[in-house]
Write a protein that binds this DNA or RNA. Structure first.
Length: 261
DNA sequence: CCGGATGTTCACCT
DNA sequence: GAGGTGAACATCCG
């Protein structure tokens, strides 16, 4: 589920806990703690500290704990959700069931005075780390500049879609958003990333930003126009051509063989 | 029953 | 070095 749009919704939800003081860290699943983090270390690092900021770069949600405190980095994988005070940031799930089990709660912050922030993740593909290397991520796709995008694609033989989803070069574009924005931009996902003309680069930059903003405004990465056609027999909503289904950059990819060139 | 799914990381090839 | 592939995680759905 979570791509940039979903994580931005989570970030806005997390703003509700800014100003609250962490009374307890609940980390029952050691597998969910990444890069050597342990429950004991996490507790010692943030218990008693206030949450002072809720930021986001790409799909990484960052919680600040004061100028002298660590940063908590939250990743949601494909099935992770955020709940604050028992309320989920997203209830409109594309095809996931609405089954909810507390057994899937992998990490939580409990606050003084009540309330909590929980990560609920059935598949355990997400995780929590302390002081994530934010510099390892490329510029956020929602606000990337033309030159930032050009750098992400520069002189590469890799497929355009693979580069757009490379979080170290451009942060936030997931599989669904990549297909949607390339479809809107009329660009073939398998084109070598370095083969775009200056005009195509400008066009792509415009569609990266507007598509992600649009998906965010509609409430999720599954709200694109291409979503309903991501199935056998799907057709291009623009021209009715049978969509092409293939693997590009290791991920299932749908595109229109007529207008995406 | 089988295959695939909105993500990331890593080992192992070419 | 640059890409590509498959595995792992655990659950649900068609």
């Amino acid at each position: 589920m979570p791509e940039l749009a979903e994580v931005e919704v989570y970030r806005r939800l997390a703003e509700q806990v800014v100003g609250r003081v962490v009374s307890e860290v609940v980390a029952p699943d050691s597998w969910y703690l990444k890069r050597g983090l342990t429950a004991a270390v996490a507790k010692a690092a943030v218990e008693g500290r206030p949450v002072t900021g809720a930021r986001r770069t790409g799909k990484l949600l960052l919680l600040d704990t004061g100028s002298d405190g660590p940063v908590l980095g939250l990743r949601f994988g494909m099935s992770g959700r955020l709940l604050v005070d028992g309320t989920a940031g997203l209830t409109d799930l594309s095809h996931a069931s609405n089954r909810e089990l507390e057994a899937w709660d992998r990490f939580a912050l409990v606050f003084e005075g009540g309330g909590d922030l929980r990560m609920r993740d059935p598949r355990r593909l997400g995780g929590v780390e302390l002081d994530p290397e934010e510099a390892r991520l490329g510029p956020d796709a929602l606000t990337v500049t033309p030159s930032g995008l050009a750098r992400a694609l520069a002189a590469s033989a890799a497929p355009l879609k693979a580069r757009l989803m490379d979080q170290a070069r451009l942060a936030g574009v997931g599989n669904l958003a990549a297909d949607e924005l390339l479809w809107r931009a009329g660009l073939d996902p398998a084109r070598p990333a370095g083969s775009l003309s200056p005009a195509e680069l400008r066009r792509l930059h415009r569609y990266v930003r507007t598509t992600l903003a649009d998906l965010l405004a509609k409430g999720g990465s599954h709200t694109g126009e291409l979503m309903d056609e991501r199935r056998p027999g799907g057709i291009c909503p623009k021209d009715g051509t049978a969509l092409l289904r293939r693997t590009v950059g290791g991920r299932t990819t749908f595109s229109c063989p007529r207008h995406q060139v």
